[in-house]
Design a binder for these strands. Structure first.
Lengths: 202, 202, 202, 202
DNA sequence: GATGAATGAGACTTCATTCAT
DNA sequence: CATGAATGAAGTCTCATTCAT
C-alpha cells in the first residue's frame, strides 16, 4: 500500500500511463475505469482519488500528454534551417515520435481519432481547437517564407500545402493507431516525406 | 395502421441511413440503439426486428455501405488512363466522395477511424483487412506499371507511394470527420492531390 | 412480466406506493432504489423506466401525493361552518388523515420531516414553499374572521394562532412518524384539538 | 507543528461542534465524514482518531449534546412554582432554547426528527426511548397535581395534555429546523404557549 | 411489423474506513 | 496527533435485449 506523497505521484503517473494506453487501444467510450485501474495495478478508487471522474482523467491526460507533440513540432519550426528543411524536420520528428513512442502514438489517437468524444468535452474541444489554429498558422507562415525565398513552389494558396502536411500527419498517426500494416508504414515514413517534399520543392 | 412489406423495407432503409449517421457521429460504443431509433423515427424494437442486435446492425451496415468506396476506387484503377492519371483519378474520386457525401463520409469514419471496435467484431475485422489488402495490392501494381513506363519516379520501394496514398485518404477522411477546418480542407482537395502527384511524377 | 399500458400504470402506482412507504420509513438518503423496487416486486430498471432517477421519483411522488392533504385542509376551510368550527374540522381531518392512512402519514414525513433533502431539490422546495404560504394565508384569514365575529379570542396577532395550528399538525405528524408512542398520540388526537380550541375560544 | 494534549482537545471540540451543525443540516445518512472534517478544518483522519467511526461520532455527539435540553426541562419541572406555572416555564425554556441556540436546535432535530436512523443505532434508540419515557412520566405527574389542586382543567386523561405539550415542542423544533418561516414562529413562541395554557387552565 | 414495459448485466461513482508516514 | 493515499463495498444509473401485445 502506498502512502507517501512520492508514492502518490508514482501512482498518478502510472495511472496516466495506463490510461493513455487503454484509451488509445479501446477508445474513450469502450474503456472501463477498471481497465485502467487494472493496468496500473491499483483499484478504481485510486483513479477517483487522483482524477475525480472519467472525463477529468481524460482531459488531464490529454493536456499533460499532447503538449509534447506540439512542442516537438514548434521546436522544429524554430530551428536554424531553411523553411523547406524545417518543414521536413517537422514532419520527420512528428512521424518519428508517432512511430517510436507507442504511448505517444496512442496519445495521438486521443488527439486526432477520438474526436467524437469531444462533443462531451467542450473544454477539451476548445483547447484542441486553439492548439490546431496556432499550429496551422505557424506552418502557413513558414510555407509562405519558403515560397518567398523561392525554395517552395508557388501554387496558389500556401494553405493547401499546410493542409497537405496536416493530412499526412493525421493519416499517418491514424494508420499506426489502427495497428494494421503498421510495420510497413513505419518503414515508409521517410519515403512519404520525400514524396511530399518533392511535390512542393520549387 | 397496416404494415406492408413495402413499409418494412422503408423502415429498414431509414434505419440503415440513420445508423450510418449516428455511428459515424458518435462511434460504435457511444451509440445507443435508441439514438438510431430516434433518428429513424421508430422505436428500438424495430431495430431488433430488422437486424437482430447492435453488432449485426453494424456489420450489415458496414457491408452494405463500404462497398461504394471500394467500387469507386476499383473502377478508377481500371479506367483507360495512364497509371499516373488513374492514381490521380482515384484520389480525386475518393476525396470527392468524402467531401460530397456526408453520409458516406461518416461511413468512412466507420471504415478507417473506428478500428477499435473491431476487436469485438472479428468477422468485420477480417472483412476490412481483406478489402485493405486487395486494394493495397492493386494500387501497388498500378504504381509499379507507372514506374515501368517512366511516368512515375523510381524511388526504391513502390509500396512507399501506395502508403502515401493511403495516408492521404485516411488523413483527409479523418479530418473531414473531425469537423474542424472541414471547409478549408474540402477546398484544398485538388491542391493536395496536385502536391502528391508532383511529388511522384518522373 | 407486464407488457401492456395498463400493466405499466399498475407498476407505476405500485412503485409510487412502495416509494412513499420506504422513503417515509428510512428517509431519502438512506433509501436505496433496490428497497423500493423490491417492495414493488419489480427490478430497479423499472423505476428508471418510469421515473428517470431517484430525485425525480421523489419529486413526482411528492407532487402526486401531497395534494390530498392540501385538498383536505382546503375543503375543511370552505365548509359551511363557523370559523372556529372550520378550524376544528380542519385539525380533525388533518389528524384523522395522519392517523388513519399509514401511507399518507409516511407521506407527511416526506412533507415535513425530510426537509433536509430539499436543499438538493430546489424545484420541490419552491413547490412546498408555495403550498405552505397559501395555506398559512388562508388559515389566517379564517382566524381573523373568527375574531371579528367574536368567536375567537382577540390576542394580538392572529398569525400566532395560525402558527399554533401549524405547530400542532407538524408535531402530531412528526410524532406519529417517529413510531414511538404513536398509539397514545393517536388516541389523544381529539383531546389535543379540544385543548387548542379551548385555548382560542372567546 | 507540535500537537499537545490541549490542541487535541480543541480539535475534538471543534469536530463535535461541526458535527452537530452538519448532521443537523443534512441528516445522518446524507452527511459525509468529509463534510464534518471540512467544517472543522481538519481531515477525515482526525475524526477517526477521536471518534472511531461515523456511528460512534453520532452517538457521542448525541449524548453530549442532548442532555442540556433534558436538564433544562427537568429543572423547570422542579422549580418552586405552581404546576401550571412550571409547565409554562418548561415550555418557555424549551422554546427559548430551540430559538436561541442554533446549534442546539440542530441537535434537537437529531433528537426528534431524524428518528429514522435509529434502526441503525439500537443503542441510541434505547437511550432516546428512556429519556422520552421518563420525561413523559414526569410531565404527566405534574399535570395530575395541577388537576388535583384545581389549577388545570379536568379533561378525562391527563396524558392528553402531556401529549399536547410534546406535540408542541416537537412541532416547534421541527418547524424551526425546517428553516421556513422561522422568524415568524420564533416571534410567536410566547403566544403559542399562551394559547396552550389558556386551553388547559381550569 | 412495431411497440414499449421490464429485465439484468455491468458501468460510473461515492464514501466510510484503514494505515503507513 | 494528524494526514491523505488507497481500498472496497455498495449505491446510482445506463442500456442492450427480450417479449407480450
Amino acid at each position: 500500500m502506498k502512502r507517501t506523497k512520492k508514492d502518490a505521484e508514482i501512482t498518478r503517473q502510472q495511472l496516466l500511463k495506463s490510461a493513455v494506453l487503454v484509451f488509445g487501444a479501446k477508445g474513450y467510450a469502450a474503456t472501463r475505469m477498471e481497465d485502467i485501474a487494472d493496468a496500473a495495478n491499483v483499484t478504481r478508487g485510486a483513479i477517483y482519488h487522483h482524477f475525480g471522474n472519467k472525463k477529468d482523467l481524460f482531459v488531464t491526460l490529454f493536456k499533460e500528454r499532447v503538449d509534447p507533440l506540439f512542442d516537438i513540432i514548434t521546436e522544429a519550426l524554430a530551428e536554424a534551417l531553411s523553411p523547406l528543411e524545417r518543414i521536413r524536420k517537422m514532419l520527420s520528428l512528428a512521424f518519428e515520435k508517432l512511430v517510436s513512442d507507442k504511448e505517444f502514438c496512442a496519445n495521438q489517437q486521443l488527439d486526432f481519432v477520438d474526436i467524437k468524444i469531444k462533443n462531451d468535452l467542450p473544454e477539451l474541444k476548445e483547447y484542441i481547437h486553439n492548439r490546431g489554429e496556432t499550429l496551422f498558422h505557424m506552418v502557413t507562415q513558414l510555407v509562405k517564407s519558403g515560397i518567398q525565398i523561392g525554395e517552395i513552389k508557388e501554387t496558389g494558396k500556401p494553405e493547401v500545402i499546410t493542409a497537405t502536411i496536416f493530412t499526412l500527419i493525421s493519416g499517418f498517426g491514424f494508420i499506426l493507431g489502427a495497428q494494421q500494416k503498421s510495420p510497413l508504414f513505419e518503414a515508409s515514413a521517410d519515403g512519404i516525406i520525400d514524396v511530399f517534399i518533392a511535390g512542393i520543392k520549387a
